[in-house]
Simulated assay, not measured.
Amino acid sequence: MPRPSCPRCQRPESHCLCPLIPHLASRTRVLLLQHPSEVGHALNTARLAALGLENAELRVGERFDDLAGSLSDSRYRACLLFPGDDARPVAEVAGDDPRPLLLVVPDGTWRKARKLLYLNPELEALPRVTLPAGLTSRYRLRKAPMAGALSTIEAIAAALDILEAPNRFDELLRPFEVLIQGQIEAMGEETFRKNHGS
């Protein structure tokens, strides 16, 4: 019989993260597009990000037929947080126009995120923005596929720190860090060190 879980954070009730999830305001709107394979993941950081930000929305799927309406909201400038040859630093893009950004963030493995772009041509058409080089992930349970690779929630917090400066979004990462620490404790320190280094 499955353990009862919290309907909001979807963690087991005994490990509910809701008391740690902040309620942060931002001018920047965040639209998270989550590949369905991520929904059941123990570390569903896109969900945590959406719950912690007032101006965020999480949609789950592979094809998003209603994207055009969201992307054409004239109050915002839509851009895609995803690397690419023509991607510009997010700090540079922030000063282009007084309107805040609509930051579209695909959530999934790199392969699944690329599939979301392929299946939704509106995403491919968006200007791309990237984070500064040299950021280090706190995601100690997963080997980064490339230098500077961050989890979804870390990438959003880093982007908002830049776009909304001097406001900081460290609080967004609190439930994420507790979640990771819980996973490490569950596997045991020795197993963690053996598999993931010190």
Score class of each variant (00 low, 15 high):
residue 125 A to R: 05
residue 153 I to M: 14
residue 139 Y to D: 04
residue 45 T to K: 03
residue 170 D to Y: 15
residue 124 E to H: 00
residue 152 T to R: 14
residue 28 T to V: 02
residue 188 G to P: 04
residue 134 G to N: 02
residue 45 T to Y: 00
residue 179 L to R: 15
residue 136 T to F: 08
residue 122 E to C: 02
residue 89 P to C: 07
residue 53 L to C: 00
residue 136 T to V: 07
residue 118 Y to P: 04
residue 3 R to V: 05
residue 87 A to R: 01
residue 109 T to E: 02
residue 98 P to S: 06
residue 49 A to P: 09
residue 21 I to A: 00
residue 116 L to P: 09
residue 15 H to N: 11
residue 162 I to R: 11
residue 36 P to E: 02
residue 113 A to I: 08
residue 165 A to V: 15
residue 112 K to W: 05
residue 108 G to E: 15
residue 25 A to Q: 15
residue 66 D to M: 07
residue 102 L to Q: 03
residue 2 P to I: 02
residue 112 K to C: 05
residue 99 R to H: 03
residue 198 S to M: 09
residue 21 I to S: 07
residue 50 A to D: 11
residue 167 N to W: 08
residue 89 P to L: 04
residue 66 D to Q: 10
residue 45 T to Q: 06
residue 68 A to F: 15
residue 11 R to S: 13
residue 133 A to C: 03
residue 181 Q to M: 07
residue 64 F to G: 08
residue 126 L to E: 04
residue 94 A to N: 14
residue 105 V to G: 04
residue 48 L to R: 11
residue 61 G to T: 05
residue 108 G to C: 12
residue 93 V to W: 07
residue 109 T to I: 01
residue 121 P to F: 04
residue 90 V to I: 13
residue 139 Y to G: 01
residue 91 A to R: 12
residue 173 L to R: 02
residue 95 G to E: 04
residue 185 E to I: 00
residue 152 T to A: 12
residue 183 Q to V: 13
residue 137 S to N: 02
residue 71 L to F: 13
residue 49 A to V: 12
residue 121 P to Q: 02
residue 103 L to T: 11
residue 151 S to C: 01
residue 53 L to I: 10
residue 190 E to S: 00
residue 78 A to L: 07
residue 151 S to N: 02
residue 46 A to W: 14
residue 114 R to I: 14
residue 20 L to F: 06
residue 145 P to E: 10
residue 168 R to K: 12
residue 8 R to A: 05
residue 45 T to V: 03
residue 51 L to W: 03
residue 3 R to M: 12
residue 134 G to F: 05
residue 156 I to W: 06
residue 50 A to K: 09
residue 56 A to G: 08
residue 165 A to P: 13
residue 121 P to D: 08
residue 69 G to K: 10
residue 115 K to G: 09
residue 196 H to R: 03
residue 52 G to L: 00
residue 132 P to W: 12
residue 131 L to E: 04
residue 60 V to E: 14
residue 90 V to P: 10
residue 142 R to Q: 10
residue 48 L to W: 14
residue 94 A to D: 14
residue 21 I to F: 01
residue 156 I to L: 04
residue 162 I to S: 05
residue 81 L to H: 02
residue 141 L to Q: 09
residue 40 G to S: 14
residue 15 H to I: 09
residue 197 G to I: 13
residue 57 E to A: 14
residue 8 R to P: 12
residue 37 S to M: 01
residue 161 D to N: 15
residue 115 K to W: 11
residue 186 A to T: 08
residue 10 Q to K: 07
residue 93 V to T: 09
residue 41 H to D: 06
residue 65 D to S: 09
residue 187 M to L: 11
residue 159 A to V: 05
residue 139 Y to S: 00
residue 150 L to E: 05
residue 93 V to R: 12
residue 117 L to W: 12
residue 143 K to W: 01
residue 18 C to W: 12
residue 139 Y to T: 01
residue 176 F to H: 06
residue 192 F to W: 03
residue 4 P to H: 01
residue 97 D to V: 00
residue 119 L to N: 09
residue 107 D to Y: 01
residue 180 I to H: 09
residue 105 V to I: 10
residue 159 A to I: 05
residue 66 D to E: 04
residue 77 R to L: 13
residue 81 L to P: 07
residue 181 Q to E: 15
residue 154 E to P: 03
residue 25 A to R: 13
residue 5 S to L: 03
residue 184 I to S: 03
